[in-house]
Design a protein around this nucleic acid. Structure first.
Lengths: 173, 173
DNA sequence: CTAAAGTTTCACGAACTTTTGAAACCTCAA
DNA sequence: TTGAGGTTTCAAAAGTTCGTGAAACTTTAG
């Protein structure tokens, strides 16, 4: 038999896992990622793929793919038990590190793509007859906003003090 | 015929609209919301539902539902042209205001639900034999994180200066 | 070298979302 | 009061995402 020896995870634990799963989903990740990460986070010892699948009623395939994704994001590390052949996994507990990484690799990337796309589109905008070229001006506003977002994210990632006042001043007048 | 008199929106404009649409999608809204908002944002004059549907190749129904959602979020206002019977729409241009509103009504709400769920789950957690109750301690960590998030969001919404240092200090050690 | 254990990949189907088109519903003018 | 113009709602179609289970692959022990 595979991993049936593990302590039975309680109902409450599964609820925490699901709660985190939903939050992660909102953050743009898949729900199972949050669920698995949480189970590992709540476990004093690393767990194997079989246990996880059993507890969460997920197929081996799904567990495997979800774990790889988590490992890719650094949210889970492969662990190792001497003697045992199969892999074990444990949660990265520095949530701050994880958040920073997501901000750096995903959000910042997104903002930059946004800026690029705007720049391209702007180049393709025909010049208008009206003297203060309305559309072009608006696109500039969007670009300025993107730059601000980039600045803010960069600061957050670097752990610097952030002052949102400029945003509010300029855009929420 | 209905609203075929409007200036033909250029390809470039549609591209900007789509770019913003994708960004909005990432932010948890529907893509058509971003597209419609952008078209209005780039238009010097308010537009009617018919024009929007025509330019974006959306059915009247979709345009109607999308517009109501945008109005609900305060991203678009109903406008009015004397003489014309149908409604016209214009974009809210204070993006900062919009962001604040989303943070306040959606993100903050989410964090609070998260806290509640954790509190409930914690109450249902069985006490463990191990002296420093491992699982309970970890759930407390999650709760602390949620509180920090709440604090940060509240500050952002209020336009206060934000110092992310505590998060990094505590969680990214 | 072979067999057993574990892991990964993948095509398919289920479940969920989004969009459509049509019908019902307002509102105003004549 | 009726009808035309405009808007909203809704059930069904289309599209998309997600999870499964089986098969292929990899690794290690004997």
């Amino acid at each position: 038999m595979s991993g049936s020896a593990a302590e039975p995870v309680t109902q409450a634990e599964l609820e925490v896992a699901d709660t985190v799963g939903r939050l992660m989903e909102f953050w743009g990740f898949k729900r199972p990622m949050g669920r698995i990460w949480t189970l590992l986070y709540l476990s004093p010892t690393p767990l194997g793929a079989a246990e996880l699948g059993e507890q969460l009623k997920m197929s081996a395939g799904a567990v495997s793919m979800t774990l790889s994704e988590l490992v890719k994001w650094g949210a889970v590390k492969k662990s190792w038990r001497p003697g045992e052949r199969r892999d074990f996994y444990e949660a990265e507990t520095s949530i701050g590190k994880l958040v920073q990484r997501v901000l750096r690799e995903r959000e910042l990337e997104l903002v930059r793509q946004f800026e690029d796309a705007l720049t391209n589109a702007e180049a393709a905008l025909p010049h208008e007859s009206s003297s203060p070229d309305f559309k072009r001006a608006r696109v500039h506003e969007l670009q300025r906003l993107a730059k601000l977002g980039e600045t803010l994210l960069t600061a957050l990632v670097a752990g610097k003090v952030v002052d949102p006042a400029p945003i509010l001043k300029v855009y929420a007048k």
